[in-house]
Design a protein around this nucleic acid. Structure first.
Length: 106
DNA sequence: AGCGTGACGCAGG
DNA sequence: ACCTGCGCCACGC
């Protein structure tokens, strides 16, 4: 496993339940600057049985990012997990970041 | 070693 | 508020 990924995973683990963080936030927190894409790449390499709360990571628009891998149900799983934590989605399938985004400085 | 690709973000229009 | 284009950079061919 690449060392970068481990750093990203550690950052994701900081996100408290019921809150979400954007890829950009994770990138910054983990010292990757603005390399949000790398965060996505890292999560892609994340094993499913991992304890990392990857479902709390959404894009800057407050929506669940589409996987390229078709047939993967991780997207719906992500939404289910978030809703289970109390995160609400609007009719367009978006999250109100103003209310649920995680304040990184914590 | 070059090229396309991608769980993104931001500036423009 | 929505759609497009461009930048970023690690990976796999």
């Amino acid at each position: 496993m690449r060392e970068r990924n481990a750093i990203v995973f550690a950052a994701v683990c900081q996100i408290p339940p019921g809150r979400v963080a954007t890829y950009g936030q994770i990138a910054r927190i983990s010292g990757l600057g603005r390399l949000a894409r790398q965060v996505g790449y890292a999560l892609n390499a994340l094993p499913e049985d991992s304890e990392v709360p990857w479902h709390r990571v959404v894009n800057a628009r407050g929506e669940i990012s589409q996987r390229s891998a078709a047939g993967s149900e991780s997207e719906s799983l992500q939404r289910l997990r978030l809703e289970a934590e109390g995160v609400r989605f609007d009719a367009r399938g978006r999250i109100d970041l103003g209310e649920y985004s995680w304040d990184a400085a914590r």
